[in-house]
Amino acid sequence: KELVLVLYDYQEKSPREVTVKKGDILTLLNSTNKDAWKVEVDDRQGFIPAAYLKKL
């Protein structure tokens, strides 16, 4: 599985998104959309803007 590093805090703005903190390391589920990547956070799945993430 692929991991990503969170570069900036992000507060979810819709039910399809998830809230993350800078420095979190998350499982990347889908990065086919260049604008928003799907990740898993504490058994929740949701989207975060790709600009907030860096592949490890």
Results as ranks from 00 to 15, higher is better:
Ala50Gln: 06
Leu29Thr: 04
Asn33Arg: 12
Tyr52Asp: 01
Glu17Phe: 08
Asp43Gln: 11
Leu29Lys: 03
Glu2Ala: 12
Lys22Ala: 13
Val6Arg: 01
Tyr52Thr: 04
Glu2Ile: 14
Asn33Gln: 10
Arg44Pro: 01
Gln45Asp: 06
Pro15Cys: 09
Val20Lys: 00
Glu40Asp: 05
Asp42Glu: 12
Asn30Met: 09
Lys13Leu: 10
Pro49Ser: 05
Gln11Lys: 13
Leu28Ile: 04
Val6Lys: 00
Pro15Arg: 09
Gln11Thr: 14
Tyr8Asn: 11
Asp43Asn: 14
Val41Trp: 08
Lys55Trp: 07
Leu3Gln: 10
Gly23Thr: 03
Thr19Lys: 06
Ile25Lys: 04
Leu28His: 01
Val41His: 09
Lys55Arg: 13
Lys1Asp: 07
Lys21Met: 08
Val18Ala: 04
Tyr8Val: 10
Val39His: 01
Val4His: 00
Pro49Asp: 04
Tyr10Gly: 01
Leu5Tyr: 09
Leu7Trp: 03
Asp35Thr: 12
Leu29Met: 06
Ala51His: 13
Arg44Asn: 05
Arg44Ile: 08
Ile48Leu: 12
Thr32Arg: 11
Lys54Asn: 04
Arg16His: 14
Thr27Pro: 08
Gly23Pro: 01
Ile25Asn: 00
Arg16Tyr: 14
Trp37Cys: 05
Val4Trp: 04
Val6Ser: 01
Lys21Trp: 09
Leu26Lys: 00
Lys1Ala: 10
Lys54Met: 14
Val6Leu: 02
Tyr8Cys: 15
Asp42Phe: 11
Val41Thr: 13
Leu53Trp: 02
Thr32Asn: 13
Leu5Val: 10
Lys21Asp: 01
Trp37Pro: 00
Ile48Cys: 08
Lys55Gln: 07
Asp35His: 14
Val4Met: 01
Phe47Gln: 03
Asn33Leu: 09
Ile25Val: 11
Asn30Leu: 09
Thr27Glu: 06
Leu53Gln: 00
Ile25Met: 05
Thr27Val: 15
Ala36Cys: 15
Lys55Thr: 06
Lys38Trp: 14
Pro49Ala: 05
Val6Asn: 00
Ala36Glu: 15
Tyr10Ile: 02
Ser14Leu: 08
Pro15His: 10
Thr27Gln: 09
Arg44Gln: 06
Arg44Ala: 05
Asp35Tyr: 15
Val41Ser: 09
Trp37Phe: 03
Arg16Lys: 12
Lys54Asp: 05
Glu12Gly: 15
Asp24His: 06
Asp35Pro: 02
Glu2Gln: 14
Leu26Gly: 05
Val6Asp: 00
Gln45Val: 15
Lys38Gln: 14
Ser31Gln: 08
Ala36His: 14
Ser31Glu: 10
Leu28Trp: 02
Asn30Ser: 14
Ser31Asp: 14
Tyr8Ala: 14
Leu53Asn: 00
Leu7Ala: 02
Val6Thr: 02
Ala51Leu: 11
Glu17Gly: 15
Lys1Cys: 14
Asp9Lys: 03
Ile48Asp: 03
Thr19Ser: 14
Glu17Lys: 05
Val41Ala: 09
Asp43Trp: 07
Lys1Leu: 12
Tyr8Lys: 13
Asp9Ile: 04
Gln11Pro: 04
Ala50Gly: 07
Tyr10Ala: 01
Ile25Glu: 01
Ser31Cys: 14
Lys38Val: 14
Thr27Lys: 13
Asp42Leu: 12
Val18Arg: 02
Asp35Trp: 15
Tyr8Phe: 13
Asp9Met: 04
Ser31Arg: 07
Gly23His: 04
Lys38Pro: 00
Lys55Gly: 03
Pro49His: 05
Lys21Val: 06
Gly23Tyr: 04
Asp43Ile: 06
Leu53Phe: 03
Asn30Gln: 09
Ser14Asp: 12
Gly23Asn: 05
Tyr8Ile: 09
Lys54Trp: 10
Thr27Ile: 15
Ile48Pro: 03
Leu56Met: 09
Ala51Pro: 08
Lys55Ala: 06
Tyr8Asp: 10
Leu5Trp: 06
Glu40Lys: 11
Thr27Tyr: 12
Ser31Trp: 10
Ala36Lys: 12
Gln45Pro: 06
Tyr52Phe: 12
Gln11Tyr: 15
Pro15Gln: 10
Ala50Met: 06
Leu7Asp: 01
Leu28Phe: 03
Leu26Asn: 01
Pro49Met: 05
Leu28Ser: 01
Leu5Thr: 04
Asp9Leu: 04
Ser31Phe: 06
Tyr52Pro: 01
Lys38Ile: 15
Leu7Glu: 02
Asp35Val: 11
Thr19His: 05
Asn33Met: 09
Glu17Thr: 06
Trp37His: 00
Asp42Arg: 12
Ser14Glu: 09
Thr32Phe: 10
Lys13Met: 11
Thr32Ser: 14
Lys21Glu: 04
Leu7Asn: 01
Ala36Val: 15
Glu2Val: 14
Lys13Gly: 08
Leu53Tyr: 02
Tyr52Met: 08
Thr32Met: 12
Val39Leu: 03
Arg16Asp: 15
Gly46Ile: 15
Lys38Tyr: 15
Val41Pro: 02
Ala36Asn: 12
Glu17Trp: 09
Gly23Ala: 01
Ile48Glu: 02
Val20Tyr: 10
Asn30Glu: 15
Lys54Ala: 10
Leu29His: 03
Asp43Arg: 11
Leu53Cys: 11
Val18Gln: 03
Asp43Ser: 12
Lys22Tyr: 04
Val20Gln: 00
Lys38Asp: 03
Leu56Val: 09
Leu53Ser: 00
Pro15Glu: 11
Val39Gly: 00
Val18Cys: 08
Phe47Thr: 08
Arg44His: 07
Leu28Asn: 00
Leu56Phe: 08
Asp9His: 05
Val6Ala: 06
Val41Arg: 09
Glu17Ser: 08
Leu53Pro: 01
Ser14Phe: 09
Gln11Glu: 13
Tyr8Gly: 06
Val41Gln: 07
Lys22Gly: 05
Asp42Met: 11
Glu2Ser: 12
Glu12Leu: 14
Asp24Glu: 12
Lys34Pro: 15
Ala50Glu: 04
Asp42Val: 08
Asp43Val: 07
Arg16Trp: 15
Leu53His: 01
Trp37Ile: 01
Glu2Arg: 14
Val20Cys: 08
Val39Asn: 00
Lys34Leu: 11
Lys55Asp: 02
Leu7Gln: 03
Tyr10Thr: 00
Thr32Gly: 10
